[in-house]
Simulated assay, not measured.
Amino acid sequence: MKAEFVNPFISSTLSVFKTMIGMDPVKGDLYIKSDEKLFYDVSGAIGLVGDFVGYVSISFPEDLALEVGSQFLGEEITELNNELGDAVGEIINMVTGSAKKHFSDKGKKFNISVPNVVVGKGHTIQRPANIICIGVKFHLNDKIFVVEVAMKEKK
């Protein structure tokens, strides 16, 4: 996996949070994922297929998911419910869609799946074999969420 594959997702995450949610996360450390377990309690994932294959996910601790979802929807969400799931799904959809445009501008195309949202501690997303996953930590309101990118070019 190439670093330039991750950078569009970093930029689009920062942009979507600032313009669509009104929040300013700060990019933290990058890491290489060694297992399939996601960091937190609420995650959205989108599959990629075309010139690239793989997936992109965003994962929040429950309290931050509620905070971000409330800000995004403009109404307080106090529990894990369908509205929160819809918000997280739409956020990963916007992040991936924005990054997709970056790749398209460089002549690389891929389609994205409908977002899937998973709720619960210790959930996993199985990535395709032989695809390295790079994660990015983002700091927001003294909490951390992550965006993970597992993609490779089709040969």
Rank of each mutant, 00 (worst) to 15 (best):
H102Y: 14
V68H: 08
G50M: 07
R127G: 13
G69S: 10
A3D: 11
N7E: 15
S104M: 07
G44Y: 07
D24W: 03
G28R: 00
P115C: 04
S113V: 09
E4W: 12
K154T: 11
M23N: 02
I77C: 02
I32G: 06
I92Q: 08
G135S: 06
V53R: 09
L73F: 13
V136C: 09
M1R: 07
I112Q: 00
S11A: 13
F72P: 02
D63R: 08
V6A: 06
I91E: 09
V118C: 05
K108S: 02
A87S: 10
V119Q: 05
D41P: 10
D51G: 02
M151C: 02
D35K: 12
D41M: 01
I46P: 00
F5A: 03
G22V: 13
K33S: 11
K2G: 02
V56D: 05
S34V: 12
K108H: 11
K100A: 05
V119G: 00
D51W: 07
Y40A: 08
T19A: 03
E36F: 11
L140W: 05
I112H: 03
P8G: 00
N82F: 06
K106Q: 11
H139W: 09
M151I: 08
V146P: 06
K152E: 15
V117R: 05
S57K: 03
Y31W: 03
L38V: 12
E79D: 14
H123A: 00
K37A: 10
V114K: 11
E4Y: 15
I132C: 10
Y40T: 01
E62D: 01
K155C: 04
V42Y: 13
D142Q: 11
V42E: 02
G122R: 10
L48S: 07
L30S: 11
V119T: 09
I91Y: 14
V118T: 10
L38M: 11
E83D: 14
S43L: 08
N130W: 06
E79S: 15
F60I: 06
Q126D: 14
R127A: 10
A3M: 13
H139N: 14
V26K: 14
K33Y: 07
V6P: 06
G22A: 02
V88G: 05
Q126M: 12
E148G: 07
N116R: 14
C133I: 05
K109C: 08
L64V: 04
L38C: 02
V146D: 14
E62M: 09
F5N: 04
A150N: 05
I144M: 05
K121P: 02
V42F: 12
S104P: 00
T78G: 11
M23R: 06
I58M: 10
K121Q: 13
D142P: 01
F103K: 01
I46V: 15
I91P: 02
F17D: 01
T19R: 13
S113N: 00
K27A: 12
E62W: 01
F72R: 00
N82K: 14
Q126Y: 15
V149L: 00
G50N: 01
F17V: 00
H102L: 06
A99Y: 05
S15M: 10
I21N: 04
K37N: 08
N111R: 03
I144K: 07
D35H: 03
D105L: 04
N141S: 13
G44M: 07
F110I: 01
V146Q: 12
